[in-house]
Lab assay of single mutants.
Amino acid sequence: SFNTVDEWLEAIKMGQYKESFANAGFTSFDVVSQMMMEDILRVGVTLAGHQKKILNSIQVMRAQMN
């Protein structure tokens, strides 16, 4: 498990989005775990492969939080 959203993004090789997530207010796992595709688009993730990777990881995160 990760301590910060930045660490999580690095771990899934999506570190290039750290600033975008932070600027959009997605700075805690409570918020990130609620993200939908529209949120991912809003933070500027436009590549389908990256969207899928982030969404898949969020689903895993949700499962671990319950």
Rank of each mutant, 00 (worst) to 15 (best):
T4Q: 05
L47Y: 09
E10H: 07
V31L: 14
I58F: 02
A24S: 09
Q51R: 08
G44N: 04
R62V: 12
Q59C: 12
E10S: 07
Q64A: 14
A24Q: 09
Q34F: 06
F26H: 03
M35Y: 00
M14Q: 03
A11H: 15
A48M: 08
E7A: 09
A24W: 09
Q34H: 11
A24L: 09
L41R: 11
F26K: 05
S28I: 04
M61F: 05
I54W: 00
Q59A: 13
I12K: 02
W8F: 04
F2A: 07
V5G: 00
R62F: 09
S28M: 05
L47E: 15
A11P: 00
L55E: 04
M35N: 00
G15K: 05
M37C: 09
L55P: 00
M36D: 15
Q51H: 04
D30P: 08
T46I: 13
N66C: 12
M65A: 08
L9H: 00
W8D: 00
N66K: 12
M35I: 05
A22G: 06
D6F: 10
R42L: 10
M65R: 07
K13R: 11
A24D: 04
E19T: 13
H50Y: 03
T46E: 08
F21S: 00
A11S: 15
F21V: 01
M36Q: 15
A24N: 14
F21H: 00
E10C: 07
A11M: 09
V45S: 01
F2C: 11
G25N: 05
R62N: 14
Q59N: 13
A63Q: 14
I54L: 13
G49C: 13
A63V: 10
K53L: 15
S33E: 06
M65F: 06
I58Q: 01
D30M: 10
G49Q: 15
F26V: 09
S57D: 09
I54C: 02
N66D: 15
M14E: 01
Q16N: 08
I58C: 04
F26C: 06
E7I: 06
S1I: 13
V32S: 01
D6Y: 08
S1N: 13
K18T: 07
Q16G: 05
K18S: 11
L47R: 12
N23P: 01
D39S: 04
N23Q: 14
M37P: 11
T4I: 05
T46R: 10
I40A: 02
L55H: 06
K52N: 13
H50K: 02
T4V: 06
S20V: 08
A22K: 15
V45A: 03
L47N: 15
F2T: 07
S57Q: 09
M61R: 04
M35V: 03
I58T: 04
I58L: 09
G49N: 12
V45C: 04
N3I: 09
K53H: 15
G15P: 11
I54S: 00
N56P: 01
M35F: 04
G25S: 04
N23K: 13
W8Q: 01
A24V: 04
N23Y: 08
T27H: 07
R42K: 13
E7V: 06
E38W: 06
S33L: 15
G44Q: 03
E38H: 09
E19Y: 07
T46M: 11
V5K: 02
S57M: 10
S57N: 06
A48R: 10
M35Q: 01
S33W: 09
R42G: 08
T4M: 05
Q34T: 11
Q16V: 11
N66G: 12
A63H: 14
A22D: 05
S20Y: 07
K53Q: 14
Q16M: 13
N56C: 14
G25E: 04
E10V: 08
L41M: 11
N56I: 11
K13E: 15
N66W: 02
Y17G: 00
E7H: 07
E10L: 06
M14I: 03
Q59Y: 10
S20C: 09
T46W: 06
G49V: 14
G25M: 04
V43Q: 01
M61A: 05
